[in-house]
Amino acid sequence: MVKEAERFAKEDKEKRDAIDTKNQADSVVYQTEKQLKELGDKVPASVKEKVEGQLKELKDAFSCNSTQAIKDAMASLNQVVMELGQSVYSQSGAPGAGPTPGSANTGQTSSTRKVADGDGDVIDADFTESR
């Protein structure tokens, strides 16, 4: 049995690699389609067409049962998805450019003060001061 396992080890490794690659590619397809759906109209049409074209190419690579073809199509899709992210990021502007949520000046200040009581123990107290 050990000799038989050694004899088929290479074949088993190739099968495992093929299955892992297909699973990974399936995950990439799902995530990309989800991202396209979530971004909707924020994606420029030209970039969206590229992504959809690469998605189709990757889905077609599943049918040819070539692990290398799937890997190549997945790499191409990942490159185009990076372009998608860059185009959406450049449209929305740099993060932190606007006011941060909850930072509006409401006329209230919040603070923590440490006060010693009569026994010398320190007591932490939170308070909010309204103006």
Rank of each mutant, 00 (worst) to 15 (best):
V51P: 13
Q79R: 15
A73Y: 03
F8D: 14
E49D: 15
V28F: 01
T100N: 08
D60S: 10
P44H: 05
Q31G: 07
G107S: 00
I123C: 12
Y89T: 08
Q108H: 01
T106L: 07
R7M: 05
G53M: 04
G118W: 15
S27M: 12
E52Q: 14
D117A: 11
E57H: 09
T21V: 02
E49G: 12
K15D: 11
E6W: 10
K22I: 02
K22F: 02
N105K: 07
M74H: 07
V51S: 10
A75K: 15
T67S: 07
N78Q: 13
T32S: 10
K42D: 15
T32K: 05
S63H: 11
G93D: 09
S92H: 02
G120F: 06
G102Q: 08
P101S: 01
A97C: 02
D12T: 08
P95R: 02
F8R: 15
G96S: 06
K3C: 01
C64M: 13
A25M: 04
G118Y: 13
N23C: 09
G85P: 04
S63R: 14
M74T: 09
F127E: 07
Q35S: 14
K59D: 12
S110E: 13
Q31I: 09
K50T: 13
K15G: 01
A116E: 14
E57F: 01
G40I: 09
P101F: 00
S63V: 14
E83H: 06
M74D: 13
T128D: 02
Q31R: 06
V88N: 02
Q86A: 06
Q68A: 13
A75H: 04
Q35V: 06
P99I: 05
K56Q: 12
T21S: 02
T67Q: 10
A73E: 11
I19P: 02
A116W: 05
T109I: 10
Q31K: 10
S111R: 14
K50C: 03
M1Q: 05
Q91I: 03
A75L: 12
A94Q: 13
D60F: 01
A69W: 00
L58F: 09
K37G: 09
V88Y: 00
V28A: 03
I19A: 12
G102D: 00
S110M: 11
N105R: 03
G120S: 05
A97Y: 00
V43E: 11
E4A: 06
L36P: 14
S130I: 13
D17I: 08
N23R: 03
D72S: 07
K15F: 04
D17A: 10
V47P: 11
P101K: 01
S103P: 00
N65Y: 08
L39M: 09
D72P: 07
S103T: 02
A104I: 12
K50G: 05
A5T: 05
A73H: 04
K15L: 09
V28D: 11
P44V: 03
G98N: 12
V81W: 06
R131S: 12
D126K: 15
V81S: 01
V88R: 07
R16G: 05
